[in-house]
Design a binder for these strands. Sequence first.
DNA 1: TGGACCCTCACCATTTCTGGGGAGTTGGAA
DNA 2: TTCCAACTCCCCAGAAATGGTGAGGGTCCA
Lengths: 242, 242
Amino acid sequence: MGFAANFPGTDGLLEQLENSSKPEDFQEVSVALRDHYAIAHLVYHWVSADGEQFGCGTYDPVWVQRYVEKGYLRIDPVIQGCYQRFHPVDWKRLDWSSKAARAFQKDAIGHGVGNQGYSIPIRGPNGQFALFSLSHNCNDETWQLFTESNRRELILISHAFNQKALELEPGRKPEPAQPLSPREVEAMTLLAVGYSRAQVAETLSISEHTLRVYIESARFKLGAMNTTHAVARALSRGLIVV
Amino acid sequence: MGFAANFPGTDGLLEQLENSSKPEDFQEVSVALRDHYAIAHLVYHWVSADGEQFGCGTYDPVWVQRYVEKGYLRIDPVIQGCYQRFHPVDWKRLDWSSKAARAFQKDAIGHGVGNQGYSIPIRGPNGQFALFSLSHNCNDETWQLFTESNRRELILISHAFNQKALELEPGRKPEPAQPLSPREVEAMTLLAVGYSRAQVAETLSISEHTLRVYIESARFKLGAMNTTHAVARALSRGLIVV
DNA sequence: TGGACCCTCACCATTTCTGGGGAGTTGGAA
DNA sequence: TTCCAACTCCCCAGAAATGGTGAGGGTCCA
């Protein structure tokens, strides 16, 4: 049972992506997929927990550089909107009401980005955030028909991108996620929900001095500079759940 | 172009899931899917940022209750392992070396959970963590053949579960995720990476007094009791990226 | 043109956290 | 058995964060 019958043309690309091992393969597959769909652009990128970025796609490099330089990451409604969701979204369903957003949109279209767009976001365990986006120039009806009829296929493609991107991710190795002891987890968890040290100590029925030992131990294990940093890292690494 | 040809039997269930609107539908679909695949169990559940849980599946309710009561959430290698990944994983690839994990495994099998398992994790924007799991009793080869040949289909099914679960999620409404101002975002971000207030103020080229206004403002917006709590919430809600 | 929100700066006193020591028990692993 | 990691408790003093209140300027929108 294969996908070829349903996904003529993309099945091979999907397999190529699943078997790829170099970042360059991503670029190759993005271009091939863009051409297959006959759309303006196809882009995949993610940011790691350390703010590192990785991406591939068919955008004009000038636009990519401009995007970074202008700090559009903090303005782009696609980023803002997808950060709150985690499922496919049509760009026109996002909030473009702010002045900065409209200026950004105008600038983007001026650099070749289409007037239509569709993005599939996903989140990784270490605070990573990835986005798989399609863009094209056409009217709303055409775009909606295109995205809806290819929705499932696009989900699988985005999954393949995500899988490979995380496998190849450089940002994971340096921090082997040293585990916290049970008491340390309890302490960090309570701190993360707003308890003061005194409250945490009381909740855990231990002296505040003892609690300090846990916090400092956790801070050391996490390579954190202070309690807030330690809690942030524990959260980002999924060591605690709040 | 439909999926029926490739996914005989599950296509209708997938659509039923995508069109469902009540939590009860989840349960119905889980059972139908379990029967379709002729496996021991099929389970979907997630936890929200506030620790609320939602789930459906074919596990014995006695086992579910025992799982919660025993605090297995903090022992279960499936949870632990999937928290660090975000792609399909076979249970036997997880770390079962600890004594607690082996005791848990024995207890699980004693309550009808299969010796084989396969889980697809996903993370939501507000710290949610969801898990779609299959379990069965069979040998490794049979299980691997089953999961690999149905991998893409299972990804789509898990996506449908996730989509619906987030749509129906009760935990989102009470916190409308009041946005932070740009300065507040910068301040919280720098605090999250370990900067002290003095360092943040210097980095942002503002007085420490001004910085305090941002922190307190952010704390108020986030309903946080202290800075650590505010940073934790900002992280959980995806308002800042570290 | 007023209201709302953002950015900037300042004082006070108090609470909380941090960094440096040391020391005893337990239970599991080598 | 020996060792290590986790858990528990204590001292001190300085650094940092907090809570409350006040004030002026800017932009944007209704």
